[in-house]
Amino acid sequence: MTGRLELQDLTVRYGDTVAVDRVTATLEGGRIHGLLGRNGSGKTSLLSAVAAFRRPDGGQVLLDGEPVFENPAAVRRMCLIRGAGDTVVHDWPGDRVRHALDLAARLRPHWDRDHADRLVERFALRRTARLSELSRGQRSALGVVLGLASRAPVTILDESYIGLDAPSRYAFYDELLADHSAHPRTILLATHLIEEVAALFETVTIIDRGRLLLQGSADDLRARGAAVTGPAEAVADLTDGMRVLASKQLGPTRSDTVFGELTTEQITRARRAGLQLDPVPLQDLFVHLTDPATATEQPVSEGSLR
Protein backbone atom coordinates (compact mmCIF):
# COMPACT_ATOMS: atom_id res chain seq x y z
CA MET A 1 0.00 0.00 0.00
CA THR A 2 2.58 2.60 -0.88
CA GLY A 3 1.24 4.23 -4.04
CA ARG A 4 4.37 3.87 -6.12
CA LEU A 5 3.87 4.62 -9.80
CA GLU A 6 6.04 3.24 -12.54
CA LEU A 7 5.78 4.42 -16.12
CA GLN A 8 7.43 2.01 -18.52
CA ASP A 9 7.96 3.17 -22.10
CA LEU A 10 4.62 4.90 -21.83
CA THR A 11 3.33 6.05 -25.21
CA VAL A 12 0.10 7.85 -26.07
CA ARG A 13 -0.87 8.60 -29.67
CA TYR A 14 -3.73 10.45 -31.29
CA GLY A 15 -3.75 9.14 -34.83
CA ASP A 16 -0.34 10.08 -36.21
CA THR A 17 0.43 12.53 -33.43
CA VAL A 18 2.61 11.17 -30.66
CA ALA A 19 1.55 12.96 -27.47
CA VAL A 20 3.62 10.92 -25.04
CA ASP A 21 6.73 9.29 -26.38
CA ARG A 22 8.21 6.30 -24.53
CA VAL A 23 8.34 7.90 -21.11
CA THR A 24 9.97 5.81 -18.39
CA ALA A 25 9.89 7.20 -14.89
CA THR A 26 9.21 6.16 -11.31
CA LEU A 27 7.25 8.20 -8.80
CA GLU A 28 7.86 6.92 -5.30
CA GLY A 29 4.89 6.43 -3.00
CA GLY A 30 3.86 8.86 -0.30
CA ARG A 31 5.50 11.92 -1.80
CA ILE A 32 4.49 15.11 -3.50
CA HIS A 33 5.65 15.09 -7.10
CA GLY A 34 5.56 17.86 -9.67
CA LEU A 35 4.95 17.19 -13.34
CA LEU A 36 6.13 20.17 -15.33
CA GLY A 37 5.64 20.83 -18.98
CA ARG A 38 4.58 23.62 -21.25
CA ASN A 39 1.05 23.75 -22.60
CA GLY A 40 0.69 20.93 -25.11
CA SER A 41 3.77 19.09 -23.87
CA GLY A 42 1.74 15.95 -23.20
CA LYS A 43 1.08 16.35 -19.47
CA THR A 44 -2.64 15.70 -19.71
CA SER A 45 -2.20 12.74 -22.04
CA LEU A 46 0.41 11.26 -19.74
CA LEU A 47 -1.82 11.67 -16.70
CA SER A 48 -4.78 10.18 -18.57
CA ALA A 49 -2.77 7.04 -19.16
CA VAL A 50 -1.45 7.01 -15.59
CA ALA A 51 -4.96 7.17 -14.14
CA ALA A 52 -6.28 4.58 -16.63
CA PHE A 53 -8.45 7.19 -18.31
CA ARG A 54 -7.07 5.75 -21.52
CA ARG A 55 -5.19 2.63 -22.55
CA PRO A 56 -1.55 3.37 -23.31
CA ASP A 57 -0.71 2.97 -26.99
CA GLY A 58 2.61 1.55 -25.91
CA GLY A 59 4.28 0.56 -22.66
CA GLN A 60 2.42 0.46 -19.40
CA VAL A 61 1.72 2.08 -16.05
CA LEU A 62 2.16 0.11 -12.85
CA LEU A 63 0.78 1.02 -9.45
CA ASP A 64 2.71 -0.87 -6.78
CA GLY A 65 3.74 -3.32 -9.48
CA GLU A 66 0.27 -3.93 -10.92
CA PRO A 67 -0.83 -2.67 -14.36
CA VAL A 68 -3.52 -0.04 -13.81
CA PHE A 69 -5.62 -0.25 -16.96
CA GLU A 70 -8.95 -1.98 -16.26
CA ASN A 71 -7.65 -3.08 -12.87
CA PRO A 72 -10.42 -2.41 -10.32
CA ALA A 73 -8.13 -2.49 -7.29
CA ALA A 74 -5.72 -0.03 -8.88
CA VAL A 75 -8.21 2.47 -10.28
CA ARG A 76 -10.12 2.54 -7.00
CA ARG A 77 -6.97 3.86 -5.34
CA MET A 78 -6.43 6.62 -7.86
CA CYS A 79 -8.10 9.97 -8.31
CA LEU A 80 -7.28 12.15 -11.28
CA ILE A 81 -8.89 15.57 -11.22
CA ARG A 82 -8.86 17.38 -14.55
CA GLY A 83 -10.01 20.95 -14.32
CA ALA A 84 -13.07 20.99 -12.12
CA GLY A 85 -13.29 17.22 -11.89
CA ASP A 86 -15.19 15.16 -14.39
CA THR A 87 -18.50 15.56 -12.61
CA VAL A 88 -19.04 18.92 -14.18
CA VAL A 89 -18.91 17.63 -17.71
CA HIS A 90 -22.58 17.17 -18.46
CA ASP A 91 -23.73 20.37 -16.83
CA TRP A 92 -27.41 19.64 -16.50
CA PRO A 93 -29.16 22.62 -15.03
CA GLY A 94 -30.30 20.51 -12.11
CA ASP A 95 -26.78 19.42 -11.18
CA ARG A 96 -25.39 21.27 -8.24
CA VAL A 97 -22.22 21.30 -6.19
CA ARG A 98 -23.76 19.06 -3.57
CA HIS A 99 -24.55 16.42 -6.20
CA ALA A 100 -20.91 16.34 -7.27
CA LEU A 101 -19.87 15.95 -3.63
CA ASP A 102 -22.50 13.26 -2.95
CA LEU A 103 -21.42 11.25 -5.96
CA ALA A 104 -17.78 11.36 -4.92
CA ALA A 105 -18.78 10.43 -1.37
CA ARG A 106 -20.53 7.33 -2.68
CA LEU A 107 -17.92 6.25 -5.18
CA ARG A 108 -14.59 7.16 -3.59
CA PRO A 109 -13.68 4.46 -1.07
CA HIS A 110 -11.47 6.78 1.02
CA TRP A 111 -13.71 9.85 0.84
CA ASP A 112 -13.55 12.03 3.95
CA ARG A 113 -16.85 13.80 4.39
CA ASP A 114 -15.75 16.07 7.22
CA HIS A 115 -12.72 17.13 5.31
CA ALA A 116 -14.86 17.85 2.27
CA ASP A 117 -17.15 20.01 4.42
CA ARG A 118 -14.20 21.99 5.77
CA LEU A 119 -12.76 22.50 2.31
CA VAL A 120 -16.08 23.59 0.86
CA GLU A 121 -16.21 26.23 3.57
CA ARG A 122 -12.59 27.24 3.15
CA PHE A 123 -13.03 27.80 -0.58
CA ALA A 124 -16.40 29.47 -0.05
CA LEU A 125 -18.24 27.09 -2.38
CA ARG A 126 -22.01 27.15 -2.27
CA ARG A 127 -23.44 23.63 -2.15
CA THR A 128 -26.56 24.74 -3.94
CA ALA A 129 -24.68 26.45 -6.77
CA ARG A 130 -25.44 25.01 -10.19
CA LEU A 131 -22.44 23.33 -11.77
CA SER A 132 -23.24 25.02 -15.07
CA GLU A 133 -23.01 28.45 -13.45
CA LEU A 134 -19.73 28.08 -11.57
CA SER A 135 -17.04 30.63 -12.32
CA ARG A 136 -13.60 29.47 -13.37
CA GLY A 137 -12.32 29.97 -9.84
CA GLN A 138 -15.22 28.02 -8.33
CA ARG A 139 -14.75 25.18 -10.77
CA SER A 140 -11.10 24.99 -9.78
CA ALA A 141 -12.07 25.05 -6.13
CA LEU A 142 -14.53 22.21 -6.67
CA GLY A 143 -11.81 20.21 -8.41
CA VAL A 144 -9.47 20.79 -5.49
CA VAL A 145 -12.10 19.74 -2.95
CA LEU A 146 -12.94 16.58 -4.94
CA GLY A 147 -9.25 15.73 -5.17
CA LEU A 148 -8.19 16.40 -1.60
CA ALA A 149 -11.26 14.91 0.09
CA SER A 150 -10.97 11.77 -2.04
CA ARG A 151 -7.98 10.85 0.14
CA ALA A 152 -7.07 8.53 -2.72
CA PRO A 153 -3.68 6.88 -2.14
CA VAL A 154 -2.71 8.34 -5.51
CA THR A 155 -4.18 11.80 -6.00
CA ILE A 156 -3.42 13.58 -9.24
CA LEU A 157 -4.38 17.17 -9.94
CA ASP A 158 -4.00 18.27 -13.53
CA GLU A 159 -3.71 22.04 -13.29
CA SER A 160 -7.01 22.11 -11.42
CA TYR A 161 -5.85 24.78 -9.00
CA ILE A 162 -4.60 27.13 -11.70
CA GLY A 163 -7.95 28.85 -12.00
CA LEU A 164 -7.91 29.82 -8.33
CA ASP A 165 -7.11 33.38 -7.34
CA ALA A 166 -3.98 34.00 -5.29
CA PRO A 167 -5.48 33.76 -1.78
CA SER A 168 -7.30 30.54 -2.71
CA ARG A 169 -4.15 29.10 -4.23
CA TYR A 170 -2.29 29.71 -1.00
CA ALA A 171 -5.17 28.14 0.89
CA PHE A 172 -4.83 25.16 -1.44
CA TYR A 173 -1.09 24.84 -0.77
CA ASP A 174 -1.73 24.98 2.98
CA GLU A 175 -4.48 22.40 2.78
CA LEU A 176 -2.40 20.15 0.58
CA LEU A 177 0.57 20.16 2.94
CA ALA A 178 -1.52 19.76 6.08
CA ASP A 179 -3.51 16.97 4.47
CA HIS A 180 -0.40 15.27 3.17
CA SER A 181 1.30 15.21 6.54
CA ALA A 182 -1.84 13.95 8.30
CA HIS A 183 -2.59 11.35 5.59
CA PRO A 184 0.58 10.62 3.65
CA ARG A 185 -0.11 9.55 0.09
CA THR A 186 1.23 10.00 -3.40
CA ILE A 187 0.33 13.36 -4.82
CA LEU A 188 1.12 14.41 -8.35
CA LEU A 189 0.57 17.99 -9.41
CA ALA A 190 0.83 18.95 -13.05
CA THR A 191 1.57 22.56 -13.77
CA HIS A 192 3.22 25.01 -16.10
CA LEU A 193 3.29 27.74 -13.41
CA ILE A 194 6.30 26.76 -11.40
CA GLU A 195 7.46 29.61 -9.27
CA GLU A 196 4.69 29.35 -6.74
CA VAL A 197 4.50 25.61 -6.28
CA ALA A 198 8.09 24.55 -6.77
CA ALA A 199 8.80 24.48 -3.04
CA LEU A 200 5.98 21.97 -2.52
CA PHE A 201 7.59 19.32 -4.68
CA GLU A 202 9.93 16.65 -3.50
CA THR A 203 10.61 15.50 -7.02
CA VAL A 204 10.18 17.15 -10.35
CA THR A 205 9.48 15.45 -13.67
CA ILE A 206 9.77 17.62 -16.74
CA ILE A 207 8.32 16.57 -20.06
CA ASP A 208 8.65 18.40 -23.31
CA ARG A 209 7.05 17.52 -26.62
CA GLY A 210 6.00 14.19 -25.17
CA ARG A 211 9.50 13.20 -24.09
CA LEU A 212 10.87 12.92 -20.59
CA LEU A 213 13.37 15.74 -20.25
CA LEU A 214 14.51 15.02 -16.73
CA GLN A 215 13.36 13.66 -13.43
CA GLY A 216 14.82 14.01 -10.00
CA SER A 217 14.78 15.69 -6.64
CA ALA A 218 13.63 19.28 -6.83
CA ASP A 219 16.47 20.42 -4.60
CA ASP A 220 19.07 18.64 -6.72
CA LEU A 221 17.69 20.40 -9.74
CA ARG A 222 17.98 23.77 -8.01
CA ALA A 223 21.68 23.05 -7.51
CA ARG A 224 22.18 22.12 -11.14
CA GLY A 225 21.84 25.44 -12.87
CA ALA A 226 24.23 28.36 -12.82
CA ALA A 227 24.48 31.69 -14.55
CA VAL A 228 28.05 32.62 -15.45
CA THR A 229 28.58 36.31 -16.16
CA GLY A 230 31.68 38.23 -17.13
CA PRO A 231 33.96 39.11 -20.04
CA ALA A 232 32.72 37.27 -23.09
CA GLU A 233 35.89 35.35 -23.75
CA ALA A 234 36.39 34.20 -20.19
CA VAL A 235 32.76 33.06 -19.98
CA ALA A 236 33.01 31.17 -23.25
CA ASP A 237 36.22 29.58 -22.07
CA LEU A 238 34.66 28.36 -18.83
CA THR A 239 31.38 27.11 -20.29
CA ASP A 240 33.04 25.38 -23.23
CA GLY A 241 31.87 21.78 -23.28
CA MET A 242 29.06 22.40 -20.81
CA ARG A 243 25.37 22.32 -21.63
CA VAL A 244 24.61 25.99 -22.23
CA LEU A 245 20.86 26.59 -22.06
CA ALA A 246 20.88 30.28 -22.81
CA SER A 247 23.42 32.88 -23.70
CA LYS A 248 23.06 36.63 -23.63
CA GLN A 249 25.60 39.22 -24.60
CA LEU A 250 25.65 42.91 -23.85
CA GLY A 251 28.72 44.65 -25.23
CA PRO A 252 31.77 42.84 -23.92
CA THR A 253 29.81 41.12 -21.15
CA ARG A 254 28.31 37.72 -21.67
CA SER A 255 26.01 35.68 -19.48
CA ASP A 256 25.61 31.94 -19.98
CA THR A 257 23.05 29.82 -18.21
CA VAL A 258 24.58 26.38 -17.86
CA PHE A 259 22.97 23.14 -16.80
CA GLY A 260 25.06 20.76 -14.74
CA GLU A 261 26.98 21.11 -11.54
CA LEU A 262 30.15 23.21 -11.68
CA THR A 263 33.24 21.41 -10.43
CA THR A 264 35.32 22.93 -7.64
CA GLU A 265 38.03 23.45 -10.19
CA GLN A 266 35.64 25.40 -12.43
CA ILE A 267 34.46 27.53 -9.52
CA THR A 268 38.04 28.41 -8.60
CA ARG A 269 38.80 29.15 -12.24
CA ALA A 270 35.73 31.38 -12.47
CA ARG A 271 36.71 33.32 -9.34
CA ARG A 272 40.19 33.81 -10.61
CA ALA A 273 38.90 35.08 -13.94
CA GLY A 274 36.63 37.52 -12.13
CA LEU A 275 33.47 35.80 -13.33
CA GLN A 276 30.25 36.09 -11.42
CA LEU A 277 28.40 32.87 -10.59
CA ASP A 278 24.71 33.02 -9.76
CA PRO A 279 22.17 30.35 -9.02
CA VAL A 280 19.26 29.96 -11.42
CA PRO A 281 15.64 29.69 -10.27
CA LEU A 282 13.83 26.46 -11.10
CA GLN A 283 11.36 28.31 -13.27
CA ASP A 284 14.16 29.78 -15.40
CA LEU A 285 15.75 26.37 -15.76
CA PHE A 286 12.41 25.01 -16.88
CA VAL A 287 11.93 27.83 -19.37
CA HIS A 288 15.38 27.32 -20.86
CA LEU A 289 15.18 23.54 -20.89
CA THR A 290 11.90 23.57 -22.76
CA ASP A 291 12.69 26.44 -25.11
CA PRO A 292 12.40 25.03 -28.63
CA ALA A 293 15.02 27.50 -29.84
CA THR A 294 17.77 26.20 -27.57
CA ALA A 295 16.62 22.81 -26.39
CA THR A 296 18.47 20.19 -28.36
CA GLU A 297 17.38 16.61 -28.69
CA GLN A 298 19.04 15.34 -25.56
CA PRO A 299 19.09 11.69 -24.70
CA VAL A 300 17.02 11.18 -21.59
CA SER A 301 19.82 9.70 -19.54
CA GLU A 302 22.09 12.66 -20.02
CA GLY A 303 19.66 15.21 -18.75
CA SER A 304 18.14 13.20 -15.98
CA LEU A 305 19.16 13.31 -12.38
CA ARG A 306 19.97 10.41 -10.20
Binding site: F53, E70, V75, R76, M78, D86, L107
Partner: peptide, 13 residues
Amino acid sequence: VYLPLYIAHGYTR
Protein backbone atom coordinates in the same frame (compact mmCIF):
# COMPACT_ATOMS: atom_id res chain seq x y z
CA VAL B 1 -22.25 10.47 -19.67
CA TYR B 2 -22.39 7.85 -16.97
CA LEU B 3 -19.76 5.49 -18.30
CA PRO B 4 -17.07 8.26 -18.42
CA LEU B 5 -18.33 9.61 -15.10
CA TYR B 6 -17.81 6.27 -13.39
CA ILE B 7 -14.44 5.73 -15.04
CA ALA B 8 -13.40 9.14 -13.70
CA HIS B 9 -14.53 8.08 -10.24
CA GLY B 10 -12.27 5.04 -10.15
CA TYR B 11 -14.23 2.23 -11.79
CA THR B 12 -13.15 0.13 -14.73
CA ARG B 13 -14.97 0.09 -18.04
